[in-house]
Nucleic acid binder design. Sequence first.
DNA 1: GTACGTGCAAAGAATTTGCAGATAA
DNA 2: TTATCTGCAAATTCTTTGCACGTAC
Lengths: 142, 142
Amino acid sequence: MDVVTRLQLHNIKPSVQRIAIMQYLMDHHTHPTADEIYTALSPSIPTLSKTTVYNTLKLLSEHGAAQTLTIDERNTCYDANTAAHGHFLCKRCGKIYDLSTAEAPVQSQFMEGHNVHEIHYYYKGICKHCLEEERLYITKNN
Amino acid sequence: MDVVTRLQLHNIKPSVQRIAIMQYLMDHHTHPTADEIYTALSPSIPTLSKTTVYNTLKLLSEHGAAQTLTIDERNTCYDANTAAHGHFLCKRCGKIYDLSTAEAPVQSQFMEGHNVHEIHYYYKGICKHCLEEERLYITKNN
DNA sequence: GTACGTGCAAAGAATTTGCAGATAA
DNA sequence: TTATCTGCAAATTCTTTGCACGTAC
């Protein structure tokens, strides 16, 4: 879908900054932080301020155009994929991976009497790439 | 289980402060923040410092004697229940509720090639008590 | 021209770090 | 004694706020 259309569908006026940030999220499925987005876009939009990145990410999240991830204790991350899907955080390299929805717990609007709006689930451990590196290291040194 | 025993089982030396903090977590299933624990224990241990609370919570978490919750974007919360169980955060009152393990997604040590150490899943919405209050309010005003 | 959007600088909040004194095996 | 633990103060990091200027319709 077109970026501008997507913003409009969520009742967000498409400014240059908002388009750039939404576009970045749609292009990069790396679950970036506000700072990463700012650093990436700063060269092409020199006047961009971090405040605007924070404002825009909050706006996108509130209007359902992006998802806020609170996996990492340090930073809040953002994801253009707003469908309920799991995440895996590697404790070694810090990368966040998407997990297929197959792993999702059963969804329901009500749970033990509470009205559920958002579903988040994630796992932490060592990712397959770090496991592979470790395996190579062990092989090499034995 | 006894607090001291629990600490020792996780290879943590039981100091006065550590016992008090572990005890607090075991007694209060309110998923407190470092600050809440500090405020609660400060009167009985006047020399207690926030640094020690932070240090201890980190230690408990690293040694598997407590679980770190990153549901709330603002503060890190802690839970003495280290078994995989879900949480529900009420967006209105801010309370965190435990969910029965029945709602848990299927567990496995490996997932899409990644080695899973921790499983976290949580939901956000309006809790049953806030729903009830809202219902009473509507009834009263119509 | 009026409402909205942007960005600087400052404030705020949560957590960490450096270090010196206290404590315990 | 010797390593570990504690706690104050300062630093750090992430995020929000206040406010004035710009921009768009």
